[in-house]
Design a protein around this nucleic acid. Structure first.
Lengths: 122, 122
DNA sequence: AACAGAAATAAGAATCATTCTTAAAAGAGG
DNA sequence: CCTCTTTTAAGAATGATTCTTATTTCTGTT
């Protein structure tokens, strides 16, 4: 647990969104001007492998990172690109029951129009 | 609908798996030796945009393409990497009911151990 | 405090999938 | 055939991510 990792972790913790490695890098640079992209990627990857943070994959976009490790899903707005956490209780067991097979994990990404864009729509 | 596109479509149609652009390119090259990667990518992208094929995203892997456009989900084996189609009826409406919001689409990828690897396991 | 060995870093080169550019080829219509 | 449009092949360019390597930081030991 180096100070670089501590800082990256702190920045992710403070973030209200689901930042990308680059966004975290730019933030980190403000407090530690000569931190490198490689360090950010390496530490994010390591923490994701440990399971202390979560890496999210969205089509055609750089990966995003999530401080919330409790299993949950994500809804991405097709208009503004904002990503919202979504709680779908018992989805895992529902899937397992449907398939009749144990699953290790799953990733569910929902495409929708967020309420903010919905109200703006003409 | 050019002959290149027709061929790419045919190869995907014939495939029993969920090939990547590169795999399709290598196949296509056998019958049309001077087809280019760019053409394969462009046509796959175009067909995916039209909705006549489906583009699939898996973490840390090149995109895969699916001839089956009927909405369905995928289970990827963490041991061998094989990708299986999975039918989870009414998942969309279930999600919509849970969230109380209309959704445009979703992508669900399940991580599991396929039955083949399961039986091989020590 | 000084040193040796181990682990993590910064910097940037390398990689890989994908997209873009451009000049040439193929197609369509008159 | 001749022009106009579309698509292609080839490869350069891009963008996210990983890898390499020399340097720095850390840890434990004397």
């Amino acid at each position: 647990m180096t100070k670089q990792q501590l800082m990256i972790r702190k920045l992710l913790e403070q973030s209200e969104t689901h930042p990308t490695a680059e966004e975290l890098y730019l933030e980190a640079k403000k407090e530690m001007p000569n931190i490198s992209m490689g360090t950010v990627y390496r530490n994010l990857g390591q923490m994701a492998d440990e399971g202390t943070i979560v890496r999210l994959h969205f089509p055609g976009q750089p990966d995003h990172y999530d401080k919330t490790i409790r299993p949950h899903d994500h809804a991405i707005c097709v208009k503004c690109g904002s990503i919202a956490d979504v709680e779908l209780d018992s989805l895992k067991s529902m899937i397992e029951k449907s398939l009749n097979v144990g699953i290790l994990s799953y990733e569910l990404n929902i495409q929708c129009v967020c309420s903010s864009c919905q109200s703006k729509a003409s």
